[in-house]
Amino acid sequence: MIDAGIANSRFIAFFDECGDHSLVKINPQLPVFVLCTLIVEREVYARRIVPEIAAFKLRYFPHEGVNLHSRDIRKAEGPFSILQNAEVRERFMDELTALMESLPFTLFATVIRKDAHLKRYGDEAANPYNVALEYSFERILHFMEANRATDLPVIAEARGKNEDNELRASFHRLMTRGTYYNEAERFRRLVCPLAFRRKHDNIAGIQLADLCAHPIARRIIKPNQPNRAFSAIEGHFYAAGRVKGLKVFP
């Protein structure tokens, strides 16, 4: 049975990530781990975000079941092979950029620079996923308290049984124990059921988080490189006084 309060929560959160969280072998082309969280108002999500994403897809594909996956778009693979046509690609990317800029969502992202993290802490270096989860939810906690809200369903893309169980355990520890800077009592006021959905479920919010994650990673790795996708989402980052939605560590 679905909890009535959660089913009618004002906000919904969606998780996705870019890069892996292993410290054993660090990819020099992608030496970061990005945890991206996108928060939307439920009513806005239903009435605007989902329909606008579906309408965008239907301008290029025969149905809205195509999953907007960042890697496939960049590589022009699968259904996105249509992007091998330069004219179609330019029009598609222009429309997608405008869509990402205009849709109403609040963005939180934590970027762990794995090489620097490992260099600083050595064998004591914590799992980048756990670090990213803590930093992200410290900021999300601030957002929820500022909006006087407690219920926040969290939807993450399923990665596999072991990976999902690890995230469940990390999430449970965070929500019950708090963090160094935020006591457990504050987190325990939140009601944040964590659910996993497969890519074929075609969840619009997860796709938006995926489309945000890679541009954020590229921005940190190559800050001076033109990055139109990052520019489109930059205005969505949470900002309230000294609390910012984008955290880079260390």
Rank of each mutant, 00 (worst) to 15 (best):
H63T: 13
A125N: 06
R113N: 12
P31R: 09
F15V: 05
F15D: 12
F14A: 03
A149I: 06
P250M: 08
K244G: 10
K244E: 15
M93E: 15
A149S: 15
L58Y: 07
P153F: 00
I155L: 13
A204E: 10
V191S: 15
A55R: 14
N8Y: 02
K25V: 12
N130F: 12
T150Q: 13
N67S: 11
R218P: 03
A109K: 05
A184M: 08
Y129R: 07
T37W: 02
L194I: 01
H214R: 12
S102T: 14
F105V: 05
E185F: 14
E101P: 06
M100R: 12
C18R: 11
S231Y: 09
K25Q: 15
C18T: 10
E77H: 07
R139K: 14
R113K: 15
T37M: 09
N85Q: 04
K25T: 14
G245N: 05
N147I: 00
Y135T: 07
N147G: 11
L118F: 04
E145V: 05
G235Y: 01
A209Y: 01
I73L: 02
P226N: 02
F56I: 01
Y180G: 10
I206L: 10
I26P: 04
A86P: 09
I203G: 01
L99F: 04
Y135P: 03
Y181L: 14
I233A: 00
Y238H: 08
I53Y: 06
H200W: 10
R186G: 07
E43H: 13
K244A: 11
H172M: 09
L141C: 05
R74L: 12
H172D: 12
E234S: 14
L174T: 05
R177P: 07
A54D: 12
G245M: 04
A169P: 05
L23N: 03
L58W: 07
A149M: 13
R42E: 09
E64C: 08
R48L: 12
E64L: 02
A98N: 15
F15R: 00
R48N: 13
R89F: 00
A13G: 02
A195M: 11
R197Q: 13
I155C: 09
M100Y: 10
S231M: 07
L68Y: 05
